[in-house]
Design a protein around this nucleic acid. Structure first.
Lengths: 167, 167
DNA sequence: CACTCTTCCTATCAAACAAGTAGGAATACT
DNA sequence: AGTATTCCTACTTGTTTGATAGGAAGAGTG
C-alpha cells in the first residue's frame, strides 16, 4: 500500500490553507490584512493563501504544487483568485472537508489496484476471493479517512478522535 | 492509496502455488490434460509448481513474475527446486502465511508515504497531526491483511471470516 | 562420465507512469 | 501601463512495469 507524494502534499496544502483562513477569526477585529469582497464571498474570515506561501511553509516543490492545486480546484474543494491579493481559499468550512475528500479529488478513487479501482478488478481461478480482500482494505481505509476532517487535524487536542482511529 | 501490480501478482502467485501443491493432476489421464485450470479440485499430494504455469494460470507476465518469485524466495516464503520436475513450493502451510506476510516480503514495509514507511514520515507546522492519520490507516490495513491467510482465500466457504473483514 | 533436457536465475532493454522543473501565457488589481 | 498572481503546456528525471535473451543448476539416460 502506497500513498503518493501528490496525496500527501495535497492534504498538507489544504491544512495550510485552512489554517491561513482561520488565522483571522474575528471579521471586525484587528485586521491589517486587506479584506476584499473576495474573502466575504468565500464565507471565510481570512484572505486567500498564495501557492508560494504554501510551498515554503510545508516544503513542497512549487511547480509540483501548481498541478495539485489545479486538481483540488477542479474537484470543487478550492477557490482560486488571481491578481495581487489572489491565492487559494477553501470552498467549504474545514470541518466539512474530510481527508478522504481530498484523496478522492486527486486520483478519482480512494484505493486502486494496478491502476484500477478496487471494485473494478476482476479475478478468476484460485484468486477469486482476493478481490474481497481489497474491498475490505478499501472499507477499512475509508472508515479512517472519512471520519477525520481537516478541522480535526488542526485542533486535535480539543476533541479526541474516536477510539481506534488515532491512538 | 495504491496497491502495486507487484503486490497483486505476488498474492495471486502464492495462491496458485498453494492450490497447486494441494491438487496435482492424476498421472493416468493421457490426452485429457486441461491447459488453463490449475488446482481446481482438492485431492492428493502435489509437487512444485513451475513459474510458467503460474504465469499462464493467473495471466502474469512471466519475466516480471521471475523477479517477484525471487523476492518471495529471499523472504523465506517460497522454496525453489530446479530440474525436470522443479518449481516453487510454499515454505510453510498456507494457513500460516497471511496476506500481510506476502505484502511485507516485497516492499519491506506494509504502507509507505512518499516512499518512506508511515512511521518514518516527519511533519511540522499545521500538518503535525497528519502523521497520526497515516498510522491509523496503517493499523486498519494491518488488521485486515494479517488476519487473512492464504488458506482462508482458497476455502472461504468452509469457515466465514471475522465480521467486517471480508464480506 | 558425457550428454541432454527442463527449469530456475540474471542481465539488458523498451515503454508507461509519477515526480519534479521550467517557461510562458492569461487574469486581476493598482 | 505595470505588476503580481494563477494557470497552462512542454520538458527532464527516476521508478515501475513488461519483454527478450542467455546462461547456470539439477535430474535422468546411454
Amino acid at each position: 500500500m502506497y500513498v503518493s507524494a501528490r496525496s500527501d502534499y495535497a492534504i498538507r496544502a489544504m491544512l495550510a490553507i485552512a489554517a491561513g483562513t482561520r488565522a483571522h477569526p474575528t471579521p471586525g477585529g484587528p485586521g491589517d490584512v486587506p479584506t476584499t469582497a473576495i474573502g466575504e464571498i468565500a464565507g471565510g474570515a481570512g484572505g486567500p493563501v498564495k501557492a508560494a506561501t504554501l510551498a515554503t511553509a510545508q516544503e513542497i516543490p512549487l511547480s509540483f504544487l501548481h498541478g495539485i492545486l489545479h486538481d483540488l480546484r477542479r474537484a470543487g474543494l478550492l477557490l482560486s483568485y488571481r491578481g495581487v491579493d489572489g491565492g487559494y481559499l477553501l470552498a467549504r468550512p474545514a470541518a466539512q472537508i474530510s481527508v478522504g475528500d481530498v484523496l478522492r479529488a486527486l486520483s478519482g478513487s480512494l484505493t486502486t489496484v494496478r491502476g484500477l479501482p478496487t471494485e473494478a478488478a476482476a479475478y478468476h481461478g484460485v484468486a477469486t476471493e482476493l478481490g474481497n480482500v481489497w474491498l475490505a482494505v478499501h472499507s477499512a481505509i475509508e472508515e479512517v479517512v472519512d471520519r477525520t476532517s481537516l478541522a480535526d487535524l488542526l485542533a486535535p487536542h480539543l476533541h479526541a478522535p474516536e477510539p481506534g482511529a488515532v491512538h
